[in-house]
Amino acid sequence: MSKKHPIISITGSSGAGTTSVKRTFEQIFRRENITAAYIEGDAFHRFNREEMRRRMAAAAEQGNKHFSHFSPETNFLERLEEVFREYGETGTGTSRTYVHDEAEATQHGVPAGTFTEWAPLPDSDLLFYEGLHGAVVTDTVDVARHADLKIGVVPVINLEWIQKLHRDRSARGYSTEAVTDTILRRMPDYIHYICPQFTGTDINFQRVPTVDTSNPFIARWIPTPDESMVVIRFKSPRGIDFPYLLSMLQGSFMSRANSIVIHGARLDLAMQLILTPLILQLIERKRRAA
């Protein structure tokens, strides 16, 4: 953690909705005139797309059916922690971009499924991470200890799968069977390396559908915000003005002393109300330290 160079980390699984949360942060940054340096978790994958496929096939031949992007073995987690540490100490660091599709390939000038070169981060007021491992702790790395504000985006599992299925089929051209195989392959690493992060996050946003999602693999539509509730859990409720939030978020209620439940359509407003003061506290602390 760093007073001079704060770090915000958004953690969620594939299909969890971290990109939507990122857009809310971007709105806050623009409104409050805050300059952020952005890094994505995909940038720290160890292998490009073709190499990952070869290694998955080789692992499967050896009996390992669970070789996945979620594991420490397939990511540069030590380098990610080093970037967090360096930024916290100096406000500098390096990152790169994983190019997902042809549109991004045209933008960056490298083939889809590969990486751009490592490059210095731009001058910024804070660092913003979005990806799989923003609060990961293993026997050899502790990324979580470097982040000043850790946010978990954690839909209930069936909804997470529905969102992933729809995204990967529509945006990436995968079949339902291919996405299902990916979900199954990643499950052990999901349990061991993704789920534990949400114990240490400062705030978790968990969307819960209010429609039937019993079989996510045949769902024709993603449940809409109007068909959802969102559970917002605070690791430490001290300093959170719950009466104010309840008054501003119509229909909300507290389910536990550290949790508030809101209508899904009010998630963006809730995030604006909750996150803006926390971000401004980080910036004010930065200015005082400077």
Rank of each mutant, 00 (worst) to 15 (best):
D241S: 08
F242Q: 04
Y244Q: 12
L245S: 11
L245I: 00
L245G: 05
L245M: 09
L246S: 04
L246T: 02
L246Q: 07
S247R: 11
S247I: 02
M248W: 01
L249H: 14
Q250F: 04
G251Q: 10
G251T: 00
S252M: 00
F253A: 12
F253V: 05
F253Y: 15
F253P: 01
S255T: 14
S255D: 14
R256G: 03
A257K: 03
A257F: 15
N258K: 13
N258T: 13
N258Y: 13
S259I: 14
S259D: 14
S259K: 15
I260S: 09
I260M: 07
I260L: 11
I260V: 09
I260Y: 01
I260A: 12
I260R: 01
V261G: 05
V261R: 12
I262F: 04
I262G: 06
H263R: 10
H263F: 11
G264H: 06
G264E: 10
G264F: 07
G264K: 09
G264Y: 06
A265N: 14
A265L: 01
R266V: 12
D268G: 10
D268F: 00
D268W: 08
D268I: 15
L269V: 01
L269D: 08
L269Y: 02
A270Y: 07
A270G: 13
M271P: 10
Q272H: 12
L273A: 02
L273I: 05
I274C: 11
I274E: 13
L275S: 05
